[in-house]
Design a protein around this nucleic acid. Sequence first.
DNA 1: TACATTTCTTAACTTAAGTGAACGAGATGT
DNA 2: ACATCTCGTTCACTTAAGTTAAGAAATGTA
Lengths: 192, 192
Amino acid sequence: MQDLLFDFISKYITLTEDEKNAIISLNIFCSVKKGIILLREGQKSQDSYFVLKGCIRKYYIIDDEEKTTAFYTEMDALTPHCVLDGGSSEYFIACVEDSIITVTNTDMEMETNSKFPKFEIMCRKLSEELLAKQQINFDEFKTSSPEQRYLNLLQKRPDLIQRVPQHQLASYLGIKPQSLSRLRARILEKKI
Amino acid sequence: MQDLLFDFISKYITLTEDEKNAIISLNIFCSVKKGIILLREGQKSQDSYFVLKGCIRKYYIIDDEEKTTAFYTEMDALTPHCVLDGGSSEYFIACVEDSIITVTNTDMEMETNSKFPKFEIMCRKLSEELLAKQQINFDEFKTSSPEQRYLNLLQKRPDLIQRVPQHQLASYLGIKPQSLSRLRARILEKKI
DNA sequence: TACATTTCTTAACTTAAGTGAACGAGATGT
DNA sequence: ACATCTCGTTCACTTAAGTTAAGAAATGTA
C-alpha cells in the first residue's frame, strides 16, 4: 500500500531509500471505516489527505441540508483551504467507503520540507497541478448545464456514479436529488 | 508601479535589492489596451499574468457563445492550466480595461527559481493560496443559486459589477444576460 | 423475521432560467 | 446627420429545476 504513495510521489520527484524511510517513519497511513467523519465544521483543519484506496467526500451543511462539493478517490489529494482564514473550517470531510488514506499536517510538511528541500519542489508542482485541474473543473462546471455536467461525469468518473449515493451526487452536480432522477430518466428517454 | 509587484511579493518572501533588480531586468511589465486579446484558443499558453492595474478576463467560445469564467483585477494572478494538457489552450484571455500587467513564462520562472531558491517557496505559497481561494469560490458557486451568487458578488467584488459589461457578468454567474436583468429586477422589487 | 430508517423514484405544482423577438439608449462610423 | 451596431432591458413563451408529498426499494437493527 505504501508503494502506491511512492508511485504517486515519483511523478514529481525521485526519492532515495533514506527519504522513503523518513516518510514511512512519519506513520501517516490510516485506515478509515465508512461513515467516519474526519473533519467537522468548526474544527481546525490543517490536515491534508491522500486517498490510497476508497473514497472520501467534502460537504457543507447549509440550511440543514448537506451539500457535497467534492469526492476524492484513489490517487486524489485533498488540501485544506484554511490557509486563508487561518483556522477552523466551514465544511465536513467524511468517509464514503472503507478507505486507506494518509493524513499529514502543516507542521509535518514544514519539517519535511526543511529536511528535504526536494519536497518543496514536489509541493509546488502538486499545488500547481491541482490548481490547474481545479480551474478546468470549475470552468467546465460554469459553462455547462446540470445535464451536461452529469454526462461529463459519466465520461470522466463513471465509477463515482456507481459507488456514491445519488443524493450526494446530486448536490455535487449542483441540483436536488429529485432533479437528478428526472434528468436521468430524460436521458434514458432520449437514448431509446 | 513596480512597487505594487514588490508589495505583493513581500507577502510571501523578503527580497534583497539584488533580487529586486534581477526581477526588474526581466522586463516583464506590460501595458495593454482595452480589447486586446492576450491569448487565443489553440495558442500555446505557458504565460502567467499578474494584474497591477486594470482588468482582464478569461473566456471560452462554446457554440458561438462567449462564456466568461473569470475576471482578474488589481493584485490578481492568472496561472495557465495547460500544465496538464501540455500545450494549447481552449480559452481566450482578453483585456477588459486599459491595464498594466506583468507577463512571465514557465522558462523564466524555472530560471529564476534555480537562481533564487526563495522563489520556489513563493511559488508554492502562492499556488497553495490560489488553490485554497479557488476551492472556496468553487464550493460557493456550487452551493448557491444564481441569485445568491449575484448577491455574494455584490458583497465581495462590488467593483466588478460596475466595471464589467453585463453580458460578461451574466455568463460569469452561469446564466444568460436576460436572466441577470430579471434577477436584478427581482432583487430591487424585494427591497422596496 | 419484523420493524424502522434511509434512499431513490415518481408525480403535481411552483418558480426561475432559457429562448426568441422587439425596443430604446448610447456608441461608432461614414 | 444618418445609418449601423452593440448593449441592456422587457415581454411572451418554453423548458427545466425547486418543492412538497407519497410510495417503493434497499439497508440496518432489534
